[in-house]
C-alpha cells in the first residue's frame, strides 16, 4: 500500500491540490495529514474541508501547532505567525476550529508513528533541526518509522543497532529503502510553505509493501497562492517566500 504523507499544508490550497493529484498519479491509496493544515496561507477553510472529507474516508489527520493556535494556545509563535493566526482564527467558523481542536496529537498505524513535531514532548512542538533532536524523538518511541513535519525542510534520520544516528538529505524521487534493522525518523518537507530553497510543494510516499520512502516535489500555481495571501493583508514575507521556497 502506498501512503501519501502530507505535512504543513498551511492553508495553501493550490499546493495541496497539486500534491494530492501527484500522489494519486503515483498510486497513493491512503492519506496521512501530519498537522498544520492552517496558518500562513489564504485558504484555511478549503484545505480543512479537503482533509475532513479524506478523514471521513479513512485518512489520518493529526494536530499541528498552528491548528492548536487558532484555538488560543499560542505556544512560541513569532510575530508573523501570530498575525497569520489572528487572521485565520477570524476566518474559520467555531465549528471548524472545534474540529481542529479535536485532532489527535499523534497516530500509530502498524509500526509507524505519525506526529507533527517530534515523538519527544510533542505538545511542546520541538523542532527537529539536527541529530540531537532526532535522537530525542527516536528514543521516545519504539516505532520503526516515525513521520513528522514542522521544520519545513525534508530530512531522513536513522538509528543503527550500534546506536549511531545519521542524517540523509533526501534526493527528490529516489525510493529510499527503509531498512528493517534500523529505526527511522522521516521529516517531511512542507506542502504549503517549503523552506529548503526549492519552492515546489513537498510531500512523501511511503510504500509499505516495498518498504521504501520517496520524497517528492510538485510544482504548483505559486502566483495564485501568493496573490491570495497578498489580498488578505497578511505580512509580505508570507507570500514572497513561496516563490523562493525559503
Amino acid at each position: 500500500m502506498r501512503v501519501a504523507l502530507l505535512a504543513d499544508i498551511h492553508a495553501n490550497l493550490e499546493a495541496l491540490r497539486a500534491c494530492i493529484a501527484d500522489a494519486r498519479d503515483n498510486g497513493a491509496e491512503r492519506w496521512v495529514y501530519l498537522g498544520d493544515i492552517v496558518g500562513y496561507g489564504a485558504d484555511p477553510s478549503a484545505c480543512l474541508e479537503i482533509v475532513r472529507e479524506a478523514c471521513e474516508n479513512g485518512a489520518i489527520a493529526i494536530k499541528g501547532n498552528h491548528d492548536e493556535a487558532v484555538n488560543g494556545t499560542r505556544f512560541r509563535l513569532n510575530q508573523i505567525a501570530l498575525a497569520a493566526i489572528e487572521w485565520t482564527s477570524a476566518v474559520l467558523s467555531a465549528e471548524e476550529k472545534d474540529y481542529l481542536d479535536k485532532l489527535p496529537m499523534s497516530a500509530t498505524e502498524g509500526n509507524c508513528l505519525y506526529v507533527h513535531a517530534s515523538a519527544a514532548k510533542p505538545e511542546a512542538w520541538p523542532y527537529i533541526v539536527g541529530l540531537d533532536q532526532a535522537v530525542d524523538s527516536l528514543n521516545a518511541t519504539q516505532a520503526h518509522l516515525t513521520v513528522c513535519g514542522h521544520v519545513h525542510t525534508p530530512a531522513l534520520y536513522n538509528l543503527a543497532v550500534t546506536g549511531k544516528i545519521m542524517v540523509h538529505t533526501p534526493v527528490t524521487g529516489t525510493e529510499i529503502p527503509i531498512l528493517p534493522q534500523r529505526r527511522w525518523l522521516a521529516v517531511m518537507g512542507a506542502v504549503g510553505q517549503p523552506r529548503d530553497g526549492n519552492p515546489a510543494a513537498a510531500y512523501g510516499i511511503w510504500d509499505t509493501r516495498a518498504g521504501t520512502l520517496a520524497y517528492r516535489r510538485v510544482p504548483y500555481d505559486i502566483d495564485t497562492a501568493a496573490a491570495k495571501i497578498r489580498g488578505t493583508g497578511l505580512p509580505d514575507l508570507l507570500w514572497r517566500r513561496l516563490s523562493v521556497g525559503r
Binding site: 533541526v129 539536527g130 541529530l131 540531537d132 525542510t153 544516528i165 542524517v167 529548503d196 530553497g197 525559503r246
Partner: peptide
Amino acid sequence: KEGHNIHVQRLVELKHWARG
C-alpha cells in the same frame, strides 16, 4: 560527540543557505 554532531548540522545549514 555533541560538538561533532553540531558541526555536521552547521555544515548542512551552510550548504542549505548557499543553495540559492
